[in-house]
Simulated scan of single mutants.
Amino acid sequence: MLSANVDEKLRELAGDPKFPHRDAARHALRFRESGDVADLVAIADDPHGCETTDMLFAMAGQKQPWLNWVPMPQESVINILRGIARDRAAGKNVTVAELGISGPEPPSAIAAFLRVAGPAPVGIANFGTPDPRVPLRPGRYAVWRYQGETAQPAVEPPSAEAVRVLYAVGAEPWPSPLAGYARAAPLGDLPLNDLLGLLVHPPRPPDVQRYRILADSDPAYWYRLLQPWVCLGILHHRTDEPWASSVRRQVLIDLAFGVEDWACDAALFALVTAAYREPALRDEVRVLVRDRLVAATKAPRPVTIWTSLAQLMLITPGLLDGERSLATTVLERNADDDDEPEPEQVPARPEPVQENGASSARERRWPRWLWGRR
């Protein structure tokens, strides 16, 4: 288990002349102090890698988004859902007749809202440009397709066995991407259709204490967490195929540049995980993450996964100075929000709902400079 005081433990290990992985411990400590991804890469590339270095990698990324847990959803529909969940937990009978939002939000977020709040029409005032309903790049694999304003699953529901495996693998966050990859191996034994089906036909949260607690504060978090788990499973799909021509690579790239959705950054997270494991993939993965972040930055409308993409960029192996600067700027310009909580520490912040059902959360979440971004 990780020490409650990770920094203190790392300093102890780094200074212990008898500890065989002092260099890795020093890199872990430096990453926690500076955030330089080169230190994480040095741990992953340790020539004497073992379970101990994997633990040091996990210690370096403890309580860091994507390295230890999936960023909390930031969509207005999820903010509204949090308020509904708190009201219901307080004994109020809350129902939703209809909902209107000012701009597009990921279909997975809207699906999570409807799954918890109940069926209701959701109206979107303006999709803006570039149209999030259109993939950024043409691809073979897709999990959402739009009919007008409404996103529809492009794949069939998963089997009962797929749901069972997901519950067994993904009920909790990962200690690190490396540990998550290892734990996701059973998902790779499922048919690809099952894996894609899990992304858009998610089962209800597993009946464990974590999600019983979150049901009263952040009931959508399971739906956000499961997609990166499934994408880690896709990394295990047909691993006998050479990477460059593999189905697993093509699926993840198509998802990353497909319809704007939680599946985009989930797929990129899996690719970043692959880059830590296989140095030969690093240049390609870095460019993919950068290109998706740049596309979100250039969009003259809010992109709700923008911050998450920036967080991913900062932990991508081989990160260049310009890419670090871009990602850091994104995060700094969103710093007017409160520090993002971990799932177990979601504060009770009611979100106002206008008479037409539209939340003002989007306007407060996205600073004014973003609305005019070109």
Rank of each mutant, 00 (worst) to 15 (best):
W69F: 14
L56S: 00
S108D: 10
P107T: 06
A358T: 14
L370Q: 14
T95A: 13
E323R: 05
P71M: 05
I43T: 00
W366K: 00
E363Q: 15
W174Y: 08
R282I: 03
R277Q: 14
V6D: 06
N5T: 11
T307Y: 02
R22N: 02
P352T: 04
V41M: 01
L136M: 14
R140Y: 04
G139E: 07
A184F: 09
K63T: 11
V37S: 00
A162E: 05
G233Q: 06
P186L: 05
V287D: 14
L178H: 09
V6N: 05
G258W: 02
Q354P: 07
D339Q: 10
A244T: 13
L214C: 00
E172I: 05
R212E: 08
E340F: 08
A112T: 04
D54C: 01
L10Q: 01
R133C: 08
G83N: 01
F31T: 04
R137H: 13
P352C: 07
Q152S: 12
E363I: 14
R137G: 11
V287G: 08
A89G: 03
M72T: 14
V116S: 01
L312K: 02
I101N: 00
I315E: 03
E98R: 15
P119H: 12
L13G: 03
E342T: 11
M72I: 15
P202N: 00
A89E: 10
F113K: 01
A179Y: 09
S217R: 15
R368V: 11
A275R: 02
P138T: 09
I213T: 13
D46C: 01
L226Y: 07
R30Y: 09
N356C: 11
V247M: 04
A348Q: 10
R248E: 08
R183F: 12
T129Y: 10
R32Y: 00
L293S: 05
G148W: 08
K9F: 11
Q64R: 15
R88C: 01
A85L: 08
Q354V: 08
V303P: 02
A182L: 13
A151V: 09
L178R: 15
P158E: 06
R333K: 14
V200K: 03
G15S: 06
D16G: 03
A60S: 04
F127C: 01
T129I: 12
H48A: 04
D87R: 14
M59V: 03
V272I: 15
L214T: 01
N193M: 09
R11F: 07
G188S: 07
I80S: 12
A14N: 07
L195D: 08
S108M: 02
F19C: 04
Y276E: 03
P119V: 14
R301Q: 11
N79Q: 12
R290Q: 13
A160N: 13
H48W: 00
L314D: 03
A38C: 05
S159E: 07
Y276Q: 05
E8N: 10
P347S: 10
R137K: 15
R282K: 02
D39P: 03
A120R: 13
E351H: 09
L99I: 12
A89S: 11
P242C: 10
N5V: 10
E8M: 12
C264F: 11
L196Q: 03
G103W: 10
V200S: 06
R183D: 13
Q227E: 14
S325V: 14
R210G: 08
I315P: 02
A151G: 13
D265K: 10
L195S: 05
N68F: 08
L56R: 02
R373I: 14
N356T: 04
